[in-house]
Amino acid sequence: MIGVVFAVALGGMIGTLVRYTTGNWVTSHFPQHFYSATLAVNLVGCLMIGYLYGLFLMRPEVPEALRAGLMVGFLGGLTTFSSFSLDTLRLLENGQAPVAIGYAAASVLGGLLATWAGLTLTKL
């Protein structure tokens, strides 16, 4: 059990560092599109969780620590609904309702599509 906890903690640390670095890079290069970093990590995270879920269904022998470390730790740290919510609210507060609506739709629909795509990749 301690190995699983350690794997989740390590994965979470790496995932949050990737998200933090992505956010800083996007904000420094494209400050008007600050929300793009959250959208990108959420879509990539959805693609990855779909792929890993399908892969782990086909390979049940993969150790629980690796599965939990990747799916709960890394992807849990990488993606975030709270940042998505704050980004959407900031866009609305700045009078950018069309962008906020597009961003929310792209995040939700894109996330579902990316998760499906990731799962489908495992069936190829």
Score class of each variant (00 low, 15 high):
82 S>I: 00
78 L>I: 02
111 G>A: 06
46 C>I: 02
110 G>E: 03
100 A>T: 03
121 L>I: 03
79 T>W: 01
4 V>W: 09
3 G>P: 14
42 N>H: 05
16 T>P: 02
58 M>K: 04
21 T>F: 11
92 L>R: 09
114 A>W: 11
99 V>L: 02
113 L>S: 10
95 G>D: 05
29 H>Q: 15
115 T>P: 03
4 V>Q: 13
96 Q>P: 00
109 L>A: 14
21 T>E: 13
87 D>V: 09
89 L>N: 12
96 Q>M: 08
72 V>N: 03
79 T>N: 07
54 G>L: 14
64 E>R: 14
27 T>A: 12
107 S>P: 13
44 V>P: 05
40 A>S: 15
49 I>T: 06
94 N>K: 08
93 E>D: 11
116 W>Q: 01
95 G>Q: 02
67 R>T: 13
59 R>P: 00
48 M>N: 07
10 L>V: 14
102 G>D: 06
104 A>W: 09
98 P>C: 02
32 Q>W: 13
91 L>Y: 02
91 L>A: 07
4 V>M: 10
2 I>S: 15
88 T>R: 02
45 G>N: 06
7 A>G: 11
40 A>L: 15
58 M>Y: 13
36 S>T: 14
72 V>S: 04
45 G>S: 06
68 A>M: 12
123 K>D: 06
53 Y>D: 14
104 A>Q: 09
68 A>L: 11
106 A>I: 13
40 A>T: 15
93 E>F: 11
71 M>T: 13
70 L>Q: 04
39 L>Q: 09
16 T>E: 00
25 W>M: 04
